[in-house]
Write a protein that binds this DNA or RNA. Structure first.
Length: 569
RNA sequence: CGGGGCGUGGCCCAGCGGUAGGGCGCCUGGUUUGGGACCAGGAGGUCGGCAGUUCGAGUCUGCCCGCCCCGACCA
């Protein structure tokens, strides 16, 4: 491709609206163009990268036994009523009416349709297992699209679905998909962490996320350097140091004037925060919830939401707290009635806690669970943080930030039950099919790759997903001998099957061209110029390196091939 | 949805009651050419929309729309 023919131009100024590196660089290099909030065109350069990613995904899905198909984005709303996910997705589901006033949805994912297909086509255990996949556009009316292609409302997703006779078979498919995913990221040149995850709105049992580690990621991953345990912070399991139990003391009210925070209370009483219990108030689907957790810990809202089976969970407002008759800053579950009460496991991990007295400026000491108060649900709702202990090996945990670039789930039989997807086993008994689903956001993967691979000058593309492999820069092309050599080299490389972007613009200065090359970040840069040609050479530089080397003209094609084959992981 | 910010040629911005400007980019001619060159000439804008205040509105007021950023969601 010749730069002179490329429709897109790089931008000279940083787009002011783009905070994240990938967003800024993709706009600046002319990879994407915004159409609406969270809706982008993929311009020719980005589209080449996206196709390369898609092809890697296809090859690995096919190798893992997947069959590609294409399902519609436009679907009747009845399907979503039938699965119960119309309300589960809520406002995130794009919906519209056709000319007859019939309600339709733009699909955010395809369990409903794929399950219907399998119901119609699979009757026997001999037909299983089946893995179906597609690379197709998804629509999700996200509350807040952000950061370019990281979170958008319309996006290409590879979604795969496994259909299995039993849990062992599901486990096989799940492992095969997990391995295919590892292969995909490795082949894209992107190291990822596979972490235990919450299954969210999709529902199901086991679930893992694949995260590209970068400081600007939106997810926190808890990681154990010792045993390699990794989990999304939303999911990570809590373990507690054994506190030596003390003899239980009686409840005693103490004056704590003006104290409303754990830090203030612990300081005033000269006790560690873990000797206190904290009360936190939430609204779950419109009803107040009273949460008790040890004073040194934070509430994990995802765990809490799951424990309550709530669709919507948020912190209660001051007004709602007051209306429920609670004393913010001095509340405890002692004597609490008429409100759902949830206790973290940590309330059993110590005793003689200091808790609120349910009247301002007073607390109680010597509180013990369950002697002094009760909870409706006791479960793990702790938000794991660095320094907490690994559930496997008790090593202190680290936290890193990552971008979720893939997610796999064991769904179980829920969808098959909704749609009546059954088969006859070898005994002639009717059984329900069990399912898994497996997703990769293609555009997000590209954005995450850039988020992770860039420097001050621009993108540093991993070779397998770069739009082109070689950026051939011709300097001083008004000199006919230079233009001739550059042209010959361009055609030679193309003939050898190398993807070359040839900057053939005769009227651009060296600075502009070299800056553009750094910005776009193709793996190899070749510079043809009068200065280099005088030595019968071309300058070759890998984008990730700081040093360039001079290569004799007749060896350039060979050196390029060598360099490219070395960069394939 | 709550909080903050912004809408002026393709891009980045200035102008804050009195005849729409600059830089980049674009077109023509010339000079340049290894890290975003120079000279001369030129094209290009219903100042997000609607209503109002005013002799006069890009500028003031109200309503609406759109976009970005921070929080609840996810590939």
């Amino acid at each position: 491709m010749r730069v002179s023919r490329l429709v897109t131009k790089s931008l000279r100024d940083d787009p002011p609206e783009a905070e994240s590196a990938s967003h800024r660089l993709m706009l600046k290099a002319g990879l994407i163009y915004q159409v609406a909030a969270g809706v982008y065109s993929a311009l020719p350069l980005a589209w080449r990268s996206l196709r390369k990613i898609e092809n890697i995904i296809r090859e690995e899905m096919d190798a893992a036994g997947g069959q590609e198909l294409l399902m519609p984005a436009l679907q009747p709303m009845e399907l979503w009523e039938q699965s119960g996910r119309r309300s589960a997705f809520g406002e995130n589901l794009f919906s519209l009416q056709d000319r007859r006033g019939r309600e339709m949805a733009l699909a955010p994912t395809h369990e409903e349709v794929v399950t219907s297909i399998v119901r119609a086509n699979v009757q026997s255990y001999r037909d299983l297992p089946v893995i179906l996949y597609q690379i197709q556009t998804k629509f999700r009316d996200e509350p807040r699209p952000r950061a370019g292609l990281i979170r958008v409302r319309e996006f290409a997703m590879k979604d795969a679905y496994s259909f299995n006779a039993d849990d062992d078979s599901l486990d096989d498919s799940y492992q095969a998909m997990a391995q295919a995913y590892r292969n995909i990221y490795r082949r894209c040149g992107l190291p990822v962490l596979m972490a235990e995850a919450d299954s969210g709105a999709i529902g199901g049992k086991d679930s893992h996320e694949f995260l590209l580690i970068t400081p600007t990621g939106e997810d926190t991953v808890i990681h154990c350097a010792s045993c390699q345990y990794a989990a999304n912070a939303e999911k990570a399991e809590a373990v507690y140091r054994e506190l030596s139990p003390e003899p239980e003391q009686p409840l005693e009210e103490i004056s704590t004037p003006g104290l409303k925070t754990i830090a203030g209370l612990a300081d005033f009483l000269d006790i560690p925060a873990e000797k206190t219990l904290k009360a936190v108030f939430y609204m779950a689907d419109g009803a107040p919830v009273f949460v008790t957790i040890r004073g040194d810990l934070e509430v994990n809202e995802v765990k809490l939401k799951n424990a309550l089976h709530a669709n919507d969970l948020r912190m209660a407002s001051d007004a709602e707290v007051a209306e429920a008759g609670l004393v913010a800053g001095s509340a405890s579950a002692i004597g609490l009635e008429g409100i759902t009460s949830v206790g973290d496991l940590s309330i059993s991990s110590g005793n003689n806690f200091v808790v609120g007295a349910n009247r301002p400026d007073f607390h109680l000491r010597g509180a013990n669970y369950p002697r002094d108060f009760n909870v409706d649900i006791q479960t793990d709702i702790t938000l794991i943080q660095p320094g907490h202990l690994c559930p496997n090996c008790r090593t202190p945990l680290d936290a890193v930030r990552g971008i979720e670039v893939g997610h796999i789930f064991k769904l179980g039989t829920g969808y098959a039950e909704s749609f009546g997807a059954t088969y006859l086993d070898s005994e002639g008994q009717q059984q329900t099919i069990t399912m898994g689903c497996y997703g990769i956001g293609v555009g997000r993967l590209l954005a995450a790759a850039i988020e992770q691979n860039h420097d001050d000058d621009g993108i540093v593309f991993p070779a397998p997903i770069a739009p082109y492999q070689v950026h051939l820069v011709g300097l001083n092309l008004t000199d006919e001998s230079v233009a001739g050599e550059a042209e010959r080299l361009y055609q030679r490389l193309e003939l050898e099957g190398v993807d070359v972007l040839y900057d053939d613009r005769p009227d651009r200065t060296a600075g502009v061209k070299l800056n553009d090359a750094d910005l776009l970040g193709l793996p190899i840069r070749l510079v043809v110029s009068p200065r280099n040609l005088r030595n019968g050479a071309v300058e070759m530089k890998e984008r990730k390196d700081s040093e360039a080397v001079m290569v004799p003209l007749d060896e350039v094609a060979t050196k390029v091939q060598e360099s490219l084959s070395a960069s394939v992981l």
